[in-house]
Amino acid sequence: KLAGGNAPALNRYENESSPPLIHPDLPELVVKRHASINLTCSGTRAVSWVPPLSDNAVVKREDHRTAVLMIKDASAANTEALVCEYDDWQGAEEDKQAEIYIFVPDPEIPFAPENVSGETDLLTDIPCRVTNPDWHVVLRSVHSRTEVPAPYFNKIGFLGTFPEGSYVCETTVNGKTRSSAIYTVKADRGKDASTSWPVWMTWKSSAECQTPGPM
């Protein structure tokens, strides 16, 4: 009886230690413009969707262990990672959260609008994120128009150590070259310039790319 009685207790412990679950259980989801999105997060204790959430999103609670995130009229601005986490968690950090990434492809807005402006702490990140995961992206120097080699991740942007200057991301949609905001990189003179590269951003409409003039 002792051995048989311990098994359910062990199972309960394992369940209570598991991270929240998001339905649909996918790492990413591609959604059409103007569609509605329903994402259900559930866990072994109280869960919440991590703010900030978009203006077209509302959360409905079925009970304290289940939170449904509903997004109406999806747009390119909804291209982002959505995170659900336990409200009060004392266990391992990797078991606290669950995440799903949403893409909302829009040929007119190929790069997701950013929620930050001015100086950022993204030391090695030029965060031009495409709204369609299938689009190929290149990074160019605004001044020379040459392509800058750097690894690209469609949920993050370009990663690397970039010299001072202005950069723009480009992708081709329906035969037209589209550009992101212009990202201006300036070294932080108060720190080691070889390791610290804050990024300043100036906005540019995502329209057919025109070759910038000399800077």
Rank of each mutant, 00 (worst) to 15 (best):
V104M: 02
H64M: 12
N11R: 15
P107K: 14
N115F: 04
T202D: 12
K204Y: 07
S42N: 08
G165F: 01
D121R: 08
Y13T: 13
V138K: 09
H64E: 14
N154L: 09
S117I: 15
P24E: 10
E208V: 15
G213R: 15
I182V: 15
P212I: 05
D73E: 10
S206W: 01
E114F: 03
T124L: 02
Q97V: 09
V58R: 12
S48L: 08
L39N: 07
S196I: 14
S180E: 03
Y167L: 01
T177W: 08
S166W: 03
E80F: 04
A46E: 11
E80P: 00
P20H: 04
K186R: 12
S144H: 09
I126D: 00
F158H: 05
D188F: 08
W203A: 10
A76N: 03
T40E: 11
E16T: 11
T40P: 05
T172P: 00
C41S: 06
W89E: 12
E108W: 09
A187F: 05
A3K: 15
K204C: 06
K1S: 13
E208T: 15
V168P: 00
G175C: 10
M70D: 03
E208A: 15
G175F: 11
T40S: 13
E208C: 11
G43S: 13
K186G: 00
M201R: 05
S205W: 06
F158K: 02
Y13K: 14
T44L: 01
I182T: 11
